[in-house]
Design a protein around this nucleic acid. Structure first.
Length: 388
DNA sequence: AGTTCCCGCCAAACG
DNA sequence: CGTTTGGCGGGAACT
């Protein structure tokens, strides 16, 4: 009997059909697509990404977007992980805007490297903590107390089922997911693999993984709507995976002349701890990536006709100033981090991961190592486009 | 049949 | 105690 119904706000321009218990059924059958987190995120962003906004209330957002509170928490948590929002108080978040993203990502990258500074580099040149100024952005609210933030590392005993709540938060998961892209050489990964990696130690029950993957889907949808990542497919294995786009397809500043001065613009875009040079656009996947170890795929046809948009043309909603970005933005930054032009996915499939739960860290190093050796081999063989 | 992932129950966390 | 947050996983929409 304990029937607990959450009431759904109606009457907003986005009011979803809601489960019409009986009768009625005059309108749309129900379209899952229109209720996706990704779409909700787009709406959320276009609703708040405008001048004048400096705080967002959860209740306000929920009713304006026509969704239950629960959904707002999901959106807000991942947005906060990327720096767009910041929890100010109960029921209230501070709008930081897209301008805060670069710094947030930078901080994540640093944190990521700090955590598992393996890498097994030949010279093992640990980059001393030089870098004057240091991360300007606060240590982020998500960074809990000491303790191993993300990846719990190998731990023989149970991780003291104490504050597991936070360790499993969507926000933390998001950050770790992003770190995966920022700190490793892999720029394409399947959610399943990501789940295993981020699962940390612990026993991998089929169920725990499933749950984690569910969460990753949620995150991926939001990140996708912001164009941080893009869904693709592994070249050989038709397995779906996500590729990191970073700050490539989006304008850095929403408004042309941000009112007053942008206080958060301290450093230019020299950001990158990985050397290498600039990458040019995205490397399309197409049918040309063989796992041939000697594959001189430098030719890279720049066709990129894989665009078949599908611009999620909702009934009548529009994103605000950002999202779509089909046209070449003029003020685009040069790429926040030099990524290799080479696609590492080829060898990835060759290495067919089968790691289980023992060493995620090892796996990590493996990827790096594998890529390195392969890369140097190719580099010697051909010029590769690494122009600085 | 497998993948994607929305819904909302219900328990921590926080007044 | 009531609220706010937000894990978590069933199971339905979508390949």
């Amino acid at each position: 009997m304990a029937e607990n119904l959450m009431k759904i706000e109606l009457g907003s321009p986005f009011a979803y059909p809601a489960a019409s218990t009986e009768s009625g059924s005059k309108d749309i059958p129900y379209c899952r697509k229109q209720k996706s987190l990704g779409l909700l995120c787009s709406n959320f962003l276009s609703l708040y990404n405008r001048e004048g906004i400096e705080t967002v209330g959860l209740d306000d957002a929920a009713s304006k977007l026509g969704v239950e509170r629960r959904r707002i928490y999901d959106i807000v948590n991942v947005l906060e992980s990327v720096g767009i929002l910041s929890r100010k108080a109960k029921n209230r978040y501070t709008w930081k805007g897209f301008g805060a993203i670069p710094d947030a990502l930078e901080a994540l990258k640093k944190a990521g490297f700090r955590e598992h500074g393996s890498a097994a580099d030949t010279s093992c040149s640990e980059k001393v903590s030089d870098d004057e100024e240091d991360d300007m952005s606060d240590m982020n609210s998500l960074s809990q107390k000491s303790d191993s933030t993300s990846v719990p590392k190998y731990a023989g005993a149970a991780t003291k089922a104490g504050d597991n709540r936070k360790e499993k938060s969507l926000g933390l998961l998001t950050q770790n997911f992003v770190k995966l892209f920022l700190c490793s050489n892999m720029d394409m990964i399947s959610l399943d693999d990501a789940a295993k990696l981020l699962l940390g130690d612990g026993k991998h029950t089929s169920m725990t993984t499933r749950t984690k993957v569910r969460r990753l889907y949620d995150i991926a949808n939001v990140l996708s709507s912001m164009k941080f990542i893009e869904k693709t497919h592994h070249p050989e294995t038709r397995k779906p995976a996500f590729r990191w786009l970073g700050l490539n397809g989006k304008p850095q500043n929403g408004v042309p002349n941000s009112m007053s001065l942008t206080e958060s613009n301290k450093r230019a875009f020299g950001t990158d701890l990985t050397n290498v040079a600039a990458k040019r656009f995205k490397v399309d996947e197409d049918a040309n990536h063989i796992l041939k170890p000697h594959n001189p795929n430098r030719v890279k046809h720049e066709t990129e006709s894989e665009d078949e948009r599908t611009r999620m043309t909702v009934k009548g909603y529009h994103y605000g100033p950002f999202a779509p970005s089909n046209a070449p933005k003029v003020g685009v930054i040069h790429d926040e981090r030099g990524k290799q032009v080479i696609d590492w996915e080829s060898l990835a499939s060759a290495y067919r991961p089968q790691y289980q739960n023992q060493a995620l860290k090892d796996l990590f190093s493996h990827y790096v190592e594998a890529w390195k050796s392969w890369y140097s081999e190719v580099a010697e063989n051909s010029p590769v486009q690494l122009m600085s």
